[in-house]
């Protein structure tokens, strides 16, 4: 859910249910790296509520678009992490099996 004003779209608070530091902190990181963002922070209003508020203030662009872009970026980053990791694991496994074969030969 987005809380913002109708006249000024550049600042909004996004209330996300069923999420915690996991998403909010990563989103804050990505948002802070975006040059369009003037301020970004998050809070968890009460530890027993499963809800986080992410505040985004931009230099002019609509906060919602910037937020969506950030999440999109985070997704792309995750995909890259997954790809790199899978490659590294495959590499490691092939290297290991090659080594084992060498041992057999000796």
């Amino acid at each position: 859910m987005e809380h913002g004003s109708l006249t000024d779209l550049s600042a909004s608070t996004f209330s996300i249910m069923e999420e915690d530091h996991t998403l909010a902190n990563s989103a804050r990181f990505v948002l802070n790296q975006d040059p369009r963002v003037a301020f970004c922070g998050y809070s968890i209003p009460h530890p027993a509520d499963r809800k986080v508020n992410i505040r985004v203030q931009t230099t002019g662009d609509p906060a919602k678009d910037v937020m969506k872009d950030a999440l999109q970026d985070l997704m792309v980053m995750c995909q890259h992490v997954r790809g790199t990791f899978d490659k590294a694991v495959a590499n490691h496994k092939s290297k290991k099996s090659a080594e084992e074969m060498d041992v057999d030969r000796k």
Binding site: F14, I16, E19, T22, L23, M67, L71, Q72, M75, C78
Partner: peptide, 14 residues
Amino acid sequence: KILEEKCEKVISEL
């Protein structure tokens, strides 16, 4: 993958 899904969910909500 789960982190990706979380992002996707929030994007579609917005």
